[in-house]
Structures are given as C-alpha cells and as structure tokens.
Amino acid sequence: MNVAVFILFALLCLGGALNLLLQRHPINSALSLIVVMSSLSVLYLLLGAEFLALAQIIVYSGAIMVLFVFVIMLLNAGEEERTHGSRAAYLAGIPGVLALFAVLAGTFITLRLSFGGTRLGSFLVTTGDLSRVLFRDLLLPFEVTSVLILVAILGAVVLARKEH
C-alpha cells in the first residue's frame, strides 16, 4: 500500500517536473511546479514527517507559487518562442545531468548502510518531536536562519521603498 502510494506520487512528481521543462506557456510550467511541490509533500507524509508535509503545501504550493503565478499574470507573458536551443547546452547539459545523477545515485547506494534506513510508513515525527529538536538541540542555527530571513525582508523593503 505504502509502496503503491510512493510509486504513484513519485511518478506524478517526475511527470510534473518533466512537464515543467517541456511546456511552452509559463503559466503551465508554474502549475506543473505546484504539482511537483504537492507530490513531494505526499512523499514527506509517507516518511512520517507530518508537519513538514503540510508546511510544504502551505509555504511552497500556497504562498510562493501564488507569487509566481501572480508575476506571470501581471507581466502577461505569452507563449515562448520555440528556438532550437544552443547546441552546447544539448552537448554539455544532458551528459552533465546524467553524470551528476549517476554520481549522486552511486554515493547514496554505497553509503546506504552507514545512513541506515526505515520502512515506509513505520515512522512518525509528530509536531511536538520536531519542535523539541528545533527549539532545544538546534536552537542557535534555527535563530540564525531566522535572522538571515529578516535581513532578506529588510533588503526587499529597502529596494521597494519610494525615493523622496
């Protein structure tokens, strides 16, 4: 059952990602990205990360992608022009991506034993567990990250401020 759900949503995720690259209209690409984000959240749920799964939906599928769609709607971007693409991109890009994928897969397979593993659906991290780790063991990195985000917000405000 868990494996079936995993395969279904992993395929959906990959299909969405491919569709994102192949679509010509920007809004279709943005919508495929939403499909990718949402199927990732189902995979998190299968791994027992409830809070992460819903945070993924609320933050990525909800807030961030709404901004993407918003920008596309406001700029009124039409269909892209279909070019043949640069030859260099095809020649270097596809083997490069394959090589990167092979290296990552090889690393994960060789290091599988030292990482340890778990069965799908046999594992549950409740919101309480997660917050205990975040606010007790990892408090300093967590707060430093939030300061980083604050800096980004301030930067955005400075950039958007009207000149008087």
Binding site: I34, L54, I57, V66
Partner: peptide, 8 residues
C-alpha cells in the same frame, strides 16, 4: 493548507 491552495 487547503485554504492556501484554494486561492488558485
């Protein structure tokens, strides 16, 4: 989460 997706 469902509310935030409903915006679409």
């Amino acid at each position: 989460g469902v509310t935030s997706v409903g915006i679409y």
